[in-house]
Design a protein around this nucleic acid. Structure first.
Lengths: 334, 334
DNA sequence: CACTCGTGGGAAAGCGCTTTCCGGAAAGCG
DNA sequence: CGCTTTCCGGAAAGCGCTTTCCCACGAGTG
């Protein structure tokens, strides 16, 4: 047994060539695959990372997951998937499950919830995980302490505002998700602040809060139109919301960009294929996924700027850049 | 130890109320989470399923994964993710990895490769997995024996042909993926057969084979246009290819549907948002994911027709229905 | 009242590995 | 040539659980 183990895993000591080849041959012949659980038990660890997110079928998360999978695959790490479908309860449950699996690392992707009880429970679970030698990191914001990969949401929101102001827009609508989601808060906050900084009154921005989803975008746009739209530009807190908004606008007979300029946020792959190709804020989503996986796997980053407090949590910032397409033009007076 | 185990897991025997509450309380206080590996080792199994696919960020796989995750989550099954990025080698490696994890079930999503060596290796790996008591199933076709969830690809392809014929089209182009992918073969085969059945010559269909991806669709459409398009309708083997094709057509100045009608396959969520909203063949992708997960988890299906040979592998068929949108019209003579 | 029987707590074995520890053989040294 | 040291194969312990097996105890029975 001992010799076989050493022959298969290399490890601490030398095995004579003859014995090693015999062992390897026997293993191949028997199609032997070591029991990963027994190994994990004996080693007290395993290259496994748990990935927690809202929903893989959301293109935003899918792109991040793709990047994470690339790095995981390259380093032989096993990825366990947890879809929370936006339930804080499920999120905590998954951390606990991954803790039970003695996952080497846990990656929490997405926005986090602004709820004291949830935050406390999450902090506790992650704390135990860390005390047991586990790593964890957040992607795309979270209110908890820890390593994180962060898009420049506030900067991006502000850039959207400036881009629209430059085009000549002066009255804005915002299709926002719940402000309890930190991502949403930063994007919309950045936007509103930039508008005010330009000397416009707060009332120049009409914000409606709906679900942070395609349906939410649809509802927001429809309701804005029906209440009699005075804005000339609509900023959606995410591309997925913009997708829904675009559908609603089409149904309501509002032409984009003729009647209303439209911008999203994230630059998910389909935006450039829409009618019209839609302006947005580009984020290197796959790159964020890769960076996050590298962070928890403790392998060096390549070319990502790190903004770490000495000894404090590591933070990787990803720039958010406005991409103007055909959905935005100068406002035409109606 | 024994009593604690029984108190926590219920199981084989009764523990007095008083002792049970004491155990549970202690567990809560210590934030105890049982070591899943030790449990797996002692139980020789665990509710874990491995999900193998090309790439989660492809909307087709993302939608299937979403459905699978819903069911897994509802049944407390842990999902491990394997992205092959279309490498047969990686696919086999993942089966082996999941076998090492003693996964209860393995779900292989996607097309499979038409390669003898690969098929043999895959069959062997899955065979051992099954001999060890594991289950497996395929989603969306595969040439290997076993339970499967299958979309009606050939029927869908034929339906596309009939729909286009009915609109008056007589000359067709097909943007196909590699014919070694069974999914592609069935879709394109169904299409071609239906055209011939309508009494048209084989030469009425011009098929070009490119990568089964957005880039492949782009290349196919661009090359078709540049060689001087005589077709009035273009059928793409998948929506993702249609996305690329649409981009190429736009760049080449070919108007859809004015100069060319366009159809895809899969009905991924964005198709209805494109310019123009694009006709396709709708498949209940999330439903397929759910059905597949139910299949391997051995829980009853709801409302899915099963077409099982007695004792043979179980096959769940999913209908493919043509959805006509604005990208298809009657041909206008140029 | 002696005996059987059901009940439930705890000791111990075992799941399949890794790693320490032990010991015999070969090699090195004076 | 006798001793120590190095080398490497194999026995055994231990990872953290579940489950079987044993046993003490109290209740029921003739």
């Amino acid at each position: 047994m001992a010799t076989a183990s050493r022959a298969l895993n290399g490890g601490d000591r030398v095995v004579t060539d003859e014995l090693r080849t015999r062992v390897l041959q026997a293993a191949r012949q028997l199609r032997y695959v070591p029991n990963a659980h027994a190994q994990a038990l004996a080693n007290r660890t395993r290259a496994t990372v748990g990935l927690i997110m809202h929903d893989v079928s959301d293109p935003y998360f899918a792109a991040i997951t793709r990047g994470a999978m690339e790095v995981a695959s390259a380093h032989g790490a096993l990825v366990m998937l947890g879809s929370t479908f936006r339930s804080p309860h499920r999120e905590i449950e998954y951390v606990s499950t991954f803790r039970a699996q003695r996952a080497q690392a846990i990656l929490v992707v997405g926005s986090g919830f602004d709820d004291a009880e949830y935050l406390e429970a999450m902090r506790a679970e992650l704390g135990i995980h860390q005390d047991a030698g586990g790593r964890y990191a957040f992607v795309s914001h979270h209110d908890l302490p820890g390593d994180a990969v962060l898009p420049d949401n506030a900067v991006g929101g502000a850039a959207v505002a400036r881009a629209l102001l430059e085009l000549g827009h002066r009255r804005f609508a915002v299709a926002s998700g719940p402000s309890s989601l930190t991502t949403v808060e930063h994007r919309v906050g950045g936007f509103v602040d930039a508008v005010e900084e330009a000397g416009l009154p707060r009332s120049a921005v009409r914000v409606v809060e709906r679900e942070f989803s395609e349906d939410g975008g649809y509802d927001a746009a429809r309701d804005l139109v029906r209440e009699g739209l005075s804005a000339t530009a609509l900023f959606c807190a995410s591309d997925v919301m913009a997708l829904g908004a675009l559908a609603a606008l089409r149904e309501e007979g509002v032409s984009v960009p003729g009647d209303l300029s439209l911008m999203g946020f994230d630059d998910i792959p389909v935006m450039r294929h829409l009618a019209p190709p839609t302006s947005t804020v580009s984020l290197d989503l796959a790159g964020m996924g890769r960076a996050a996986m590298r962070l928890v796997l403790d392998v060096p980053q390549d070319g990502v700027v790190e903004e770490s407090g000495a000894g404090g949590p590591r933070r990787l910032r990803f720039p958010a850049e406005v991409v103007l397409r055909e959905s935005t033009t100068a406002p035409t007076r109606r």
